[in-house]
């Protein structure tokens, strides 16, 4: 119960934060900050609500593998699209 409520409170606070910083003119910092906060919220949901940290080893490995494949997919596509 406590873990769920703390996760919920942190998600609500980060929702307010991401909305507030969108109104500040930070240049290239705006999308970086927006994605950083979104990633933090996603991690809160994965660990606080989905219980990823307390899951069986093969499930934690699946989560980690998904992140690695995503990093390869997104990283290589951005590199190919933005270089040259």
């Amino acid at each position: 119960m406590t873990r769920h409520l703390i996760t919920f409170g942190a998600l609500a606070a980060l929702l307010a934060l991401t909305t507030w910083v969108a109104f500040l003119d930070l240049g290239a910092g705006n999308p970086v900050l927006a994605l950083g906060i979104a990633a933090a919220k996603a991690a809160l949901v994965a660990f606080g609500f989905m219980g990823l940290g307390r899951s069986a080893m093969q499930i934690r490995l699946t989560g980690a593998a998904a992140l690695v494949w995503l990093a390869i997919f997104v990283g290589l596509t951005l590199w190919a699209g933005l270089s040259g």
């Binding site: 991401t18 909305t19 927006a34 994605l35 996603a42 994965a46 609500f49 989905m50």
Partner: peptide, 21 residues
Amino acid sequence: ALYWHFVDIVWIFLYPLLYLI
């Protein structure tokens, strides 16, 4: 619940990318 939380995570990224540019 796992599925529902995932759908929540997708929206967590869509909200700033679509509404807060």
